[in-house]
Design a protein around this nucleic acid. Sequence first.
DNA 1: CGCGTTTGACCTGCGC
DNA 2: GCGCAGGTCAAACGCG
Length: 483
Amino acid sequence: MEAKKTPPPPPPPPSQSTTSTNDFSFFDDFFFEKPPNELVEVGDFGPYLYEWLGIDDEDAVVEAAVQTPVNHPPPPSSPTPSSIILESSEAALPPPVPNSQNSSEYNPAIANNNNTTTTKTAGHKRRAESVAGDGGNGSVAGDEADDENNNIKNRLKLRAATMAKIAATLTMNQRRSDNNVPKFAFLTESEEEYLEDGYRWRKYGQKMVRHSPFPRSYYRCTAIGCNVKKRVERSPDDPTHVMTTYEGLHYHGLPPELPPPRPFSIYSSDSIVPITAPKPPFPRRVKTGCSCCRGVGGGDGGSGSARAGHQVNNTIASVNVENGAIDSGDGSARAGNHANNSVTSVNVNTGANACGGGSGVSGVNDAGSERSAAIPTYVYDRQMQFVEQAVASLQSYSAPNAPMSDVTPMDVITDNHDQSFMDVDYEDFFGDGSFSDFASTSSAPAGEDLVGKKIGTGLLEDILNFSPSMAPHPHDQQQFLWP
DNA sequence: CGCGTTTGACCTGCGC
DNA sequence: GCGCAGGTCAAACGCG
């Protein structure tokens, strides 16, 4: 890596003795929150890394990583993103290359080429840069590019091996309590227990829960290496609503047999129209009929296989995104894949202090309250990833004529490392309401990427305006070089 | 036969 | 320490 990259603050020694291999707490703040383009280097950890890993040398680390391939097809021109495979914690990691078809995104070499002072800038900046036509689609010439890619490869491998080691070290319950796994939830008015979202899920459990007469079903994403899970249950308070909670992020695309997500906008506007709305009826991966077709009824046990045949008039009453230690506990639901679905609010929370948003409560967080902290842009990026995925799912599988005008301003709540809150009203930085930039689709008109720049810049300005005296986290300082 | 679901058992954390 | 609750496992089962 070039010298212009400011070394991250070295983590404390993993442990005072080599025996406490379970002490990985020092990764929480540093390791797991590396932005998408920031890969762990050996030097980041000082001499303790291999000792902590119990591995003799770097070759062994890399070798271990190479032996754990993932079958995800890498995006074009991406520097070996598929080398990452993690047993449990990968959901918490930003993707080496996110769901984007812009090959220049998340390419540190290219990003560096564009701006030598913002090596640590996150994805949205690079999006904006590439659209600005200042070389964002360019490439690093010759050996320099090769060296850079090799460097990235090696560090990816190292991170993979390290994370695998960590995962192997974690006990089951340590994994369960991983605070870094993002969670987001939907509450959907639907007769169906299971609402298609475009991903393929495998059910691995069902259980009656105390607070509800309805069973809770547990699903895992079936994509290789993907650890995203979701819980599905009917709301005990309002049985007309289905709650679905997602845990983790998909770092892969939709199954190929599915239609790609439509570009979209979730913001309230009469003028909003889907950009490339598919013509109904949509292709669907529906296995069995819904209740209107075969009468699932309110059946308890054994109802887990009830796939949606079609959902009509679903209403997304709330979307709650959370990356915090505290589970919102409100479950969720996602958009049905059919007619007249609507989103009434989106609530994002990546902070350790969860909003605890109640289920189905629209606009859980009051905009403008408790503005105090700055957030790193990569945290913001992760927020946007959550939202991107969540809303993309909703939008992709909702009807083209869904009454999106019902959407209310989105609140974003996050925290910094000090866990203080910042609360930004959606309208503050999503000024024109367009959210399409984050759909990471190749079909979005180029102009929409400018929207992304606008959003990001606005957010940072908003943050800074509300926290002028807040010293940023050491990781953050470079993040705020966003022009 | 393969794949996904079902479902009882098991594991773990937490409160008392 | 015990019981409860949530989450997960895995063998059995069912369907295409």
